[in-house]
Nucleic acid binder design. Structure first.
Lengths: 195, 195, 195, 195
DNA sequence: AATGAATGAGTTTTCATTCAT
DNA sequence: CATGAATGAAAACTCATTCAT
């Protein structure tokens, strides 16, 4: 909601990169300060505490996601094209900020903080609900096969995409994510869209 | 490789549980010692350092996985039944030791240690290769649709299963994993096995 | 090389005193912190690790020594007077900071760290070379007896002085070092300077 | 006094070597046990505590020294030959057990234990007194120059020898100690014995 | 005699956070 | 805004010693 200052964005980006490079254990105030060439004390001018940095990261991603979902659902194309739209936008975002995938796809890292962990869960739910909704409509319109429950289809789609993104990250981002996701989307279409 | 002593297994199990409860940041020697009612120093009689505990956990899982894969591939059933066999065994293991899913499905947590992170990657590759191989054979035998590349199919299957297991964990293990996995497997069969 | 901050000098001095009072085993971060009324963590704002404190002490002594040698060698007096000059300056330094003798004359204490032990050896060599050089010149100018090799003379002089300083330290600094050294220098002159 | 068992001697030797290799800080029960392939607990069958090992080492050296001094003083040769005899025997001992020099010539390492530190001091005194006595007699018999006080001469001799031995140790025992000591003794003779 | 496990206090180091300047 | 020093708690790991077997 609140717009972040330039320094805040800088801190958030440094944090995301640190998590990607060194995992959550590498996210220390010292490391952040070092990365953006500030002193440790200075960080606290911009965020009240370390958790607030993580919270800000999650909130930003949540808002980006929300907008993606809203815009994609508004477009008047068939269901599967809407789904494609959602993931294409997401992948575009990941390509710009690859490190964020380490945060978004490692839900477990926030388990020691109830607040953060709830926030992550909400994002997950939001995505799943939106997809569920699109698929249900697609099934009614005979654009998506109806002999499999929408919940299952959602799970297959999200699971496939997430696994691809995760492999991309673990490989050190060394293949073209867009290409691979397009391939997966084609395959998913074959499985899910009746001819 | 080496057989672990009873104390070592106890330490490993306590560690798995701690990761599941409190995430990797909760895995401290103090917490482990507390959990099994030992002093901190005593832990070091059984493992040279903290990382060795994680390594032992990964190695154990790797061996269990390997055996699962070998045995499943040896059975003379059609491809999709072999795949089912693999996941059923895995799920059985997860049901016995739910906490291990927090370790196995949170690859990112090891990113700060090159050795551990490599070990995790190897396990992932092992699974993928085995599945790839089964699917390829299934396609040749017309047991699995051949209009989608085996790599894509592997990704869809693994992705769907992993996503289901992850949701199970994030939900606090409050649905029956076996049932859900069976449902997903039925759905996947519909998508992948020609009638 | 680098100029040390006031706090750093304080830490270095406290460390020297601790070694003198309790030997190298008494040099703990806790003891240092206690001595200068800081918390343990605070020490690490000023030195990256414990070894760096020892290194700084050695470096400082090395520089003081170097200057002593350079200045003494520059003075245009006969060889034995130059030697006297060197030791008088050194003794003056020891009188100001008696505890440092525990560090400088206990080379063995650094043997567990290759870096430190090399640094100590370098200081030793520096002293020996300078003395060797002065004596050689003295022999050419017939100021020092030439029937004994300069290397042997160097060894006798350094050995005698060092042994005296060591006894001073072991006695708890309870005799006047300057007087004793002057006596030894007189005796050495009798042995080494031809009439 | 008490004769040490084979195991005790083994422990003492391992301890001496550890001090030589890693300094006093490397002398841990774990390291000793490792070196002689025993468990840590086993060490305590042979010595009541760690300090007792050090005490035993010092006592042994004291006794060896005492015997050397007694035997050397008993021989009816001129003063300087007696001195030569003492150091030759000592050097022979050092050649057999080079590591002991790290213990004997690093008095400071025991500073944190009053008992040990006193023991070391006693050995030092014993040597000095014996030498003093020989030199005094030598001066009376006109075998040693009398224009320098016996205390000074003692200091010069002991200092020169100790410094040579110390350099031998710091060099990693890579020159022939016997040769160097003979050279120093010849030089000392030139300085101290009237023609 | 020796083992192997355990203890409890200690070690160095790191961390989030605070605060005077 | 930013620095640099400080705190206090906690991290991983070590150590001398003990003890049941």
């Amino acid at each position: 909601m609140q717009p972040f200052s330039e320094r805040q964005e800088q801190i958030m980006n440094a944090s995301i990169e640190l998590i990607a490079e060194l995992s959550i254990q590498g996210l220390t105030i010292k490391n952040i300060a070092h990365k953006i060439k500030l002193t440790e004390g200075a960080i606290y001018r911009h965020f009240a505490c370390k958790n607030d940095i993580l919270l800000a990261i999650l909130q930003t991603f949540k808002e980006v996601s929300q907008q993606t979902l809203v815009e994609s659902c508004a477009s008047e194309v068939i269901a599967f094209e809407q789904i494609k739209g959602i993931f294409r936008r997401n992948i575009q975002y990941f390509n710009e900020k690859p490190a964020i995938t380490a945060v978004i796809f490692s839900e477990g890292i926030f388990q020691n903080d109830a607040h953060l962990s709830k926030e992550v869960f909400k994002i997950l739910e939001m995505h799943e609900k939106a997809l569920n909704c699109i698929i249900e409509r697609g099934q009614i319109n005979h654009e998506i096969r109806a002999d499999i429950k929408e919940k299952e289809i959602t799970r297959v789609i999200i699971g496939s995409i997430r696994y691809t993104v995760k492999k991309w990250r673990l490989s050190g981002f060394d293949f073209d994510l867009k290409t691979e996701i397009e391939l997966i989307l084609v395959s998913l279409k074959k499985m899910l869209v009746p001819k």
